[in-house]
Nucleic acid binder design. Sequence first.
DNA 1: GCCCACGTTGTGACCGCTCACAATCCTCGC
DNA 2: GCGAGGATTGTGAGCGGTCACAACGTGGGC
Lengths: 356, 356
Amino acid sequence: MSVTGHTSSGGRTESPQGQQKAASIRDVAQAAGVSYQTVSRVINGHPNVKEETRKRVQEAIDTLGFRRNATAFALASGVTRSISVLTSNTVLYGYAATLQGLEEASRAAGYALGVRVLTPEDDLDRAVAAAADTAGGIVVIGFDQLGAEALSRVPANVPCAAVVEAPPRGHKPDRPAVWADDREAARAATEHLLALGHKTVHYVAIPASTGTRRSAGPRAEGWRQALKTAGVTPPAPSGKGWDAQAGYEAGKKLARNPDVTAILCGNDDLALGVLRVLHHAGRRVPEDVSVIGFDDAPHSEFVTPSLTTVRMDFQGLGRAAFGLLRAQIDTDLPASAPAPADPALVLRESSGVREA
Amino acid sequence: MSVTGHTSSGGRTESPQGQQKAASIRDVAQAAGVSYQTVSRVINGHPNVKEETRKRVQEAIDTLGFRRNATAFALASGVTRSISVLTSNTVLYGYAATLQGLEEASRAAGYALGVRVLTPEDDLDRAVAAAADTAGGIVVIGFDQLGAEALSRVPANVPCAAVVEAPPRGHKPDRPAVWADDREAARAATEHLLALGHKTVHYVAIPASTGTRRSAGPRAEGWRQALKTAGVTPPAPSGKGWDAQAGYEAGKKLARNPDVTAILCGNDDLALGVLRVLHHAGRRVPEDVSVIGFDDAPHSEFVTPSLTTVRMDFQGLGRAAFGLLRAQIDTDLPASAPAPADPALVLRESSGVREA
DNA sequence: GCCCACGTTGTGACCGCTCACAATCCTCGC
DNA sequence: GCGAGGATTGTGAGCGGTCACAACGTGGGC
C-alpha cells in the first residue's frame, strides 16, 4: 500500500500589484458621496438615515464588496461576539458532543467559536489568558482535573461559564456552570443491576475532575450510594483512564473473578474494553456478566452485545453553557437557557437477569 | 431518574466602580517613565533597548499586569495569528481526528483556532466570508460535498488550505490541499479480500465529496479498480450516509444474500452497522462473511469481532494542512510540512479466508 | 414670519497598538 | 577636541471602525 500524501500549491493569480486591500468604510463613503459616519449608520441599521441616502450607500457597499472589518469593529466597539472553549479533549464522545452543542448554540447566536486544547504541560494561566484576550468570553469543559483547574484560574473579570461534573451535594461552583445529575443516573443504573438479581456491582471509574481517587466523582458516588442503600459494601473501583484500552486493562482482574456478575463503567469506551476482555475470558454477556456503560456514545447501540448505558445530553449541556455565558456578555437579553435533557438509562443487550 | 441540571450564577464581586479596564501600553509607559513606543519595543523584543530601560518597563508590565491587546495588535499590524476551520462535522471520527491534528499544530505554532460548522441550510458564501474576516486564514475539511463546495467559494485572496479526498488521477485541486491515497488503500483492502478466496467484494459507500453517485470517490474507485483488475464485475455499491445506522440499513440486503461473503465499508461506523445486521441475520463474521472498514476509529479494535480496517492518519493530515496554510501566511518560514503517515491495512478478526 | 424641535449629516477624538521617521545621546576614531 | 555613525528614544500618523457632539436643513406651532 502506497501513499501519495500529495501536496499541491494552488495557482495563485497574484498579480505584481498584489490584491488590492478590502474596501473600508471611507472608500464606500467616497463612492457614495457621503461621510464615513453615514456609511457606519447604514451598515448598523441606524434609523435616522434618509431612505435615498441609504440606498445610495448600499449600492456603493455592494459594488465595492465592502465587508465591515471585524477587528476594527471589535477594537472600536469593545464587542467581540466570539467565545473560546477550553477543553482537554475534542475527540472523546462526551467532550466532542459538548463541543458540538457549544458550536451549534454559538453559531446560532452569531458568535464565532474558538477551541483551545489544554494539556498537562500547559501553563494553565497562560492558556486561560490567551483564550480570554482572544474572545469575549470563555467556556470551560471541566469534566476532568485539567479543565477544573483551568476553570479555577479564569480571572474574575472575564465572562465565563463551564460545564462540569455534578458538584458535591450542597456545594455550588463559584462560576456559572451547568451539569447533569450523573450521581442520580449512576445510582439508578446500579439499582437496576441490583434489581436484576446481582449481589453487587463493580465499578470501572473514569478519572475524577477533583482529586485522583477513583472513588471520587458523582458517578462513583451514585454507584456507592446505591450499594450502601442496598446494604452492600462497595468493592474497590478500578480504572485509570478514559478509553477502551483502559477498560480492557481494568477489566482483566474482574473477568478472572467468577463472583463478578455486574459491572458499571464510567463511560461507554471503558465498557467496550470491559466487554472485550470478558469476551477474551470466555465470559458471556449478559448471561454471565452484565455490563452497563455511561454516555450512550453513537456506536454503543451497534456493538454486539449492544450496550446498556446512560444517555447523556451533552449537546444540551453545551448549549446551556453557552446560554449562561451569553447572559453575562449580552446582559439584557432574553437569557434563554434551554434545559438539557435528563440522563436516561437505556436498556439494551449487555445487561440482564443474573443467572447463577 | 431525575436531573438537577442546575445553574448557579457566580458571585461576581462587581464593585459599583466596575472592574478597572486593563492597562494599556501607555499606562505602562507612564509607570515606567518612558514613551509608549519604548514599551512597544520591549513587549516585541526589539533589540535596541537599553538593558536598564527594558528592565524598568518589564517591571511596570508585571506590576500592572499588562497584556497586549490582541485586537489592537491585529488591527495595527494586520497580523492575526489565528485560523478558522470550516467543516460539516466535528464528531465523526475522521473529522474529529483531523480537527485534532489541526488544533495541535496551530496551538504549537501559537495560532488560535476557530471552528465553524457548515450545514446544508447555510449560505456558504456568507459562512466562508465570516470565517475569513475572523481569522488570518482558512482550513476547509472537504471530505464531503458541503466542504468541497465551501472550499470552492473561498475568495482567491484569502489564505486557505484544505484536507480533501484524493482528487481524480491527474487532477490537482486549485487550492493547496492535502490528502491520503484512499484509492490505493481501498484497492489493497479489496485485493486482500480477494486473496482470501472471496469471489467478489461488496461495497458500502460513504457519500462522495463530489457528485452524489455512490460509485464516486477514491475509496469506491480503488475498490472497483481492484475488482476489475481481478476480472470481476463490481456489484452495485450501497450506502447512504456516514453512521452505523446507515451501515445497518445498507447491510440488510447484503445480509440476506448468501452469495455475499465479503464487504468493504467506507468507514468503520458503517462497518459497525454492517456487523450488527449480519449478526441479526445469523451470519457469522468472519466465518460466513468478511468485513473490512476504513479509518481505524478508536473503538474498532475493541468491538467483537474486532474490525479489520484501514488506518488513516487524520491527525497527520490536519497538521499538514495547517503547515500548508501557514506557509501562505508566514511566507518566509521553514515551511515544515511533516508528511502524514501512509494509510495502512490493519488485519483483525472481521476478515478471514472464505469458507464455502 | 419667527423660533424651536427634530431629522439628517458631518466632524473630531479615540479604541490600543504598530509603523515610519525624526530627535537625541554616546562612543569612537583621528 | 570634534564630527560621524550607531544606539536609544520619542513623535506623528494611521489601522478601520465607533462614539459624542456639533452643524445643518426643514417643517410645524404660535
